[in-house]
Design a binder for these strands. Structure first.
Lengths: 227, 227
DNA sequence: CGAATACTTGATGAGACTCAAGCGCCGTGG
DNA sequence: CCACGGCGCTTGAGTCTCATCAAGTATTCG
């Protein structure tokens, strides 16, 4: 039962690294386990690094960021989560990252204890949880590659392509996050992000309809950056 | 046979992130699954990105690096593996990283198919595999933090502390890897690595007994870098 | 309309990269 | 035994990218 639903949800979604489509999965389980539907305003904290990992969450609408903070106040954003993505899932008992609402968002909470019961009861689900962890891992490794090796233009290009792939349109990207968020995701400063985007617009690679609406005019040029 | 060796190697080591101590657990399973003991000379490839993930491996002796290659020939090293560590474990059917011997090393191969049978048969094992994946994830996220935010000195400092924590001595670090490997791990150039180490020696933070033998003279100074 | 916030743009400088020698260690061979 | 390369590492000089500091513009909201 829960399994077949899980498969259906899976097929209906494209894979974008951090998504856990399969979780859409056990509706029976959701009835049993789904906590309240929560709402967070933009920039509200959902949980902090170090908090007890009592629940994990599925994003219904809006955008969420997961991040770590450094002692000097700076921030490294680990990932942006889009609707359908699941986050806050931990191997241990505490959260290793903070999660914050980028925009207003709606979230369903799942109790952790229930999940463990599911894992114990159904090894196919267990394998899917494992597979989720491995997807996250792969995405994080790609992120490392970008952070370690890319120029500002390469980082911004990869970021825009990632957002385009995960969004609805292949050429129009609606950025829910601020320049500061982008900077903290890519290991750059806000000024460099801004300058690089302006530069790309001057070159005709992209168009900035508004600061948050980007049109990819020359997708090829962006892809060639990281070639 | 290989089993007792495996367990011995396992028990003799502390946890350092990527280790999979729990594997020591099912000795019966190891008897059934342990493949041949393999030997690789320094700089030999163990598997390449894209290869079928038929097996995963446990490192018995020596040091291994896992990495990705970029089109321009550059390399990002994902992790260094020390004896006791397990690697080559994948969610999908192919390897997402290459693995290469840093020094001469001895490795035990485990068949993947058998592993899946174990997961199906024993949910405790399944949970441990999941937990392993989450450890890797955590380590990789920390690596991202370093790559995205650190100065050269911060990166080198963190690297030395990591190696010291994982090694036998708290103050003497034996580097199995070349400067190039370190550079590719930290997202720096070989020259910057060299210069930074020299600088640290001039300041009395470390001593370079030989190019590969580092003594941490002022651990505190290194820790304060990333404060 | 004014104030706050987010973003862009410019000038400058620091840090890391690039290019280019130079050193030191080893193994080889004369 | 020492000369010779080869290789890995270090060091130096110059350049370039990106961070920093500092305005200035746009957009939103009261």
């Amino acid at each position: 039962m829960s399994v077949s639903l899980a498969s259906a949800a899976l097929n209906g979604h494209k894979h974008h690294g951090i998504a856990m489509p399969w979780l859409g999965a056990e509706q029976t389980a959701e009835v049993a386990l789904g906590g309240p539907v929560l709402h967070f305003a933009a920039d509200r904290r959902i949980y902090a690094e170090g908090d007890d990992a009592r629940s994990y969450y599925k994003l219904v609408s809006g955008v969420v960021r997961t991040c770590k903070f450094l002692s000097d106040g700076r921030r490294q954003i680990d990932a942006f989560l889009l609707p359908g993505d699941v986050f806050g899932f931990e191997g241990g008992t505490i959260h290793r990252l903070s999660a914050e609402a980028v925009s207003d968002c709606t979230i369903i909470a799942y109790r952790r204890r229930g999940t463990e019961a599911i894992i114990a009861a159904d090894d196919r689900i267990a394998r899917q949880f494992f597979s989720y962890a491995m997807s996250c891992l792969e995405q994080t490794r790609d992120h490392c590659l970008l952070l370690g090796r890319g120029s500002a233009a390469q980082k911004i290009g990869a970021f825009l392509l990632e957002m385009a792939d995960r969004g609805d349109s292949a050429t129009k990207v609606e950025l829910a996050m601020s320049r500061q968020d982008i900077a903290d995701y890519l290991g750059l400063t806000i000024e460099t992000v801004s300058r690089t985007l302006s530069q790309m617009e001057r070159e005709g690679t992209i168009a900035l309809q508004t600061t948050r609406k980007v049109v990819l005019r020359n997708r090829r040029a962006l892809e060639d950056l990281n070639a």
